[in-house]
Amino acid sequence: MKGKNFIALMIGFNLVGGIIAGLLVGYAFDVWIMEKLFNVRTYPFGLIFFFFIGVISGFRNALRDLKRLD
Rank of each mutant, 00 (worst) to 15 (best):
S57H: 06
Y43Q: 07
L66T: 10
G22D: 12
K4R: 14
W32L: 15
K2G: 11
F51C: 13
M34R: 07
Y43D: 07
T42M: 10
N14W: 10
L15N: 03
W32G: 05
S57M: 11
F59M: 04
K4E: 08
N14H: 07
I33V: 02
M34E: 13
G26I: 01
M34P: 00
I7T: 05
I53L: 15
F29Q: 08
F51Q: 02
F45S: 10
K4Q: 09
I20V: 15
K36M: 03
A28Q: 00
K67H: 14
G18F: 00
Y43T: 14
G58I: 01
V16R: 02
L69R: 14
I20L: 12
G26M: 02
R60D: 10
R68Q: 13
F59D: 01
D30R: 03
I19E: 02
A28L: 11
W32C: 06
M10Y: 04
L9F: 10
K2R: 12
L63C: 09
L15A: 11
A8N: 15
F45Q: 10
F45G: 12
I7P: 04
V16A: 03
G46H: 02
K4I: 11
D70K: 13
F6N: 15
M10K: 12
V16N: 01
D70N: 15
V31M: 02
N14F: 06
F51V: 09
